[in-house]
Write a protein that binds this DNA or RNA. Structure first.
Lengths: 257, 257
DNA sequence: CGGCCAATTGATTAAACTCAATCTGCGTGG
DNA sequence: CCACGCAGATTGAGTTTAATCAATTGGCCG
């Protein structure tokens, strides 16, 4: 499991360890960070806040109070239609930003809602421009994170537009596992899965009933175990085969599994 | 038509006129640009290339040769699945970037394909970092453009996940009209629509046949006229009513219609 | 123990798909 | 100028996937 793919550089750094923030762990996997940069990134997260499960961090149409960095927990970006239909666009996991590029126009185009108890750091969006100005390596890291967000949302569109129910679900589970793994929050063959089946349905563009059936199918086929709050992956291979999962869009250098 | 919504600032500038590039027209609608900034943006687009309809600008999995700025024509970002299924993620219209945030890792996660004969400007992705470093106003403009791209892709996910066929189509048509209008490429009540019905189906997550039926329904209901290459909007109100269209996510200050 | 939310299951319906033709407009070569 | 070919558009028929509706069950919390 600790093996790195041949040819990919093993990025390691004495300033990054298990006590580092998820953001540092994430960026440290992509960019070789100096000690000064690690220190800077940790300092950036000095101003913290907690949100209980279910709380709204930002409302659709309202102004971002700040740029958020997720330190612990899951946040969903979602749109609610006038008749109550809901679509979850994507998840912000530990190490992810919310409102990274919001600076002079701060109006949000979606709700950001805590799916679990969550800890975030708050920073002035103008500090992001400072990073771009003064920290070229970190600026590259932010660009990478930006592109990755695009890719994740793009894959979400492919799932919704052109994949079957089972494909959508398998693909999502793999994406979440890889993303969590990058910040050391995935299990060896499992992940915390704090979504209700209704949340999953609003992510996958399906009805709650159909999500239930699809989960059951995957369980009965021996591909996953699922119970409230946790998914265990019994066969990465089968999951990948169904989803036709290609992890490159998540773009870490080293990929496990 | 020249009326601006009450309360929204009329941004105008003697350095911006009909001969300006689409990028300048677009950013000039959001940010008050100095003459120096306009000149800089035009200079940024000195290195140009043309792509014929159908040509690929970037291939999924390949490296971006450059950051592109679309000057004329439409480009589709799309993913092709192994069995041939296709999903168009979004369109790059005049004034839009392709690969804006690609700098140290340039691998594309989708194909970019010219839907019409297209003219683009090519620039070194590192120049984007220079803009962030040296041109704070333009940096804000790029952040705005980035957020807008996110919002557009987010709405695409909502269309695909939670809207009916007719809603998807109406919503897309309105989005395209507003985006084109911002760069003065929309008609009063019409837009160039270079997509085949197959392209439209791969954008909307429908079959080609169903797109055909939905177009016909909208024509027979007197809401649009559609013929090869052009859509005329007979009723913005009906279109908006069906789509529940809220243009705020496109975030220009002044909105027509 | 009661209440509530989430999960599960069955039955039926509806939206959109596939398959199979046919039609139309346009460009090309004879 | 016309025949041919092709890509895209249109239409009809039958099928499939997933949605909706309607209960019922299971767990957890106060």
């Amino acid at each position: 499991m600790q093996d790195l793919d041949a040819g990919t550089p093993a990025i390691s750094h004495e300033a990054i360890d298990g006590t580092s923030s998820a953001l540092v762990r994430k960026l440290g996997r992509m960019v070789l960070l100096s000690t000064a940069e690690v220190t800077f990134l940790e300092g950036l997260q000095a101003n913290r806040a907690k949100f209980e499960k279910g709380r709204e961090l930002v409302a659709d149409g309202a102004e971002y109070p700040a740029t958020f960095i997720v330190r612990r927990g899951w946040v969903a970006r979602q749109k609610i239609l006038e008749d109550g239909r809901r679509q979850i666009l994507s998840f912000a996991l530990p190490g992810d930003f919310l409102g990274l590029h919001v600076n002079f126009r701060r109006v949000a185009a979606y709700d950001a809602v805590a799916l679990t108890d969550t800890e975030v750091a708050l920073l002035d969006p103008n500090r992001v421009l400072e990073i771009y100005r003064d920290y070229p390596i970190l600026a590259s890291g932010l660009s990478w994170a930006t592109v990755r967000e695009f890719n994740v949302l793009g894959e979400q569109a492919v799932r919704l537009g052109r994949r079957s129910a089972a494909e959508r679900m398998c693909h999502l589970l793999l994406e979440l596992w890889y993303r969590l793994d990058l910040v050391d929050e995935a299990g060896e063959r499992s992940l915390e899965f704090p979504l209700t089946q209704r949340d999953a349905s609003d992510t996958l563009g399906l009805s709650q009933v159909h999500v239930n059936r699809t989960f059951r199918y995957l369980k009965e086929a021996g591909i996953i175990d699922y119970s409230r709050g946790t998914v265990a992956i019994r066969s990465f291979d089968k999951l990948k085969a169904i989803a036709a999962f290609e992890p490159e869009y998540l773009a870490p250098f080293q990929l496990r599994k």
